[in-house]
């Protein structure tokens, strides 16, 4: 479980930890039932307060992505497909918002697609 956080980032440390664990479940690096580094150990390794890692794990647990056994540690609950589905849902949400705003601004589908392509190539290449 490889995690690197930036303390200068605008994104809070707990959010960075969450995002990276999610990404590793999605990529299959962390398989279902794989053990996660304990919260207190991770806090020590990343040099953040214990509350920070507790919050990240708490959020992941609330989202149903990991589970914690008292005294045993935390483990991956879901497989990459669950997270992929979550990502798809959130993509659909964002696209809906984009379509709403496009129609308000008077853009047609082709124009919206062009913009999407621009952004896609900008981000991915």
């Amino acid at each position: 479980m490889n995690i690197n956080i930036s303390l200068q980032s605008e994104i809070p440390a707990y959010e960075q930890i969450k995002m990276q664990i999610k990404a590793q479940i999605l990529s299959g690096e962390l398989a279902p039932n794989a053990p996660l580094t304990s919260m207190r150990q991770l806090a020590r390794n990343l040099r953040v307060s214990i509350i920070t890692t507790t919050r990240a794990y708490g959020d992941l647990e609330a989202e149903g992505l990991i589970y914690t056994l008292q005294g045993r540690g935390s483990f991956v609950k879901c497989d990459s497909e669950t997270i992929r589905q979550q990502y798809l849902c959130s993509i659909d949400q964002s696209l809906k918002t984009a379509v709403e705003k496009a129609s308000a601004a008077g853009l047609n589908l082709a124009q919206l697609q062009n913009r999407l392509e621009d952004i896609y190539y900008e981000q991915c290449h």
Binding site: R40, A43, R44, I50
Partner: peptide, 11 residues
């Protein structure tokens, strides 16, 4: 400080 973190490992 790292040693204090080590002290904190047990819950």
């Amino acid at each position: 400080l790292d040693i204090f973190r080590e002290y904190l490992l047990p819950e």
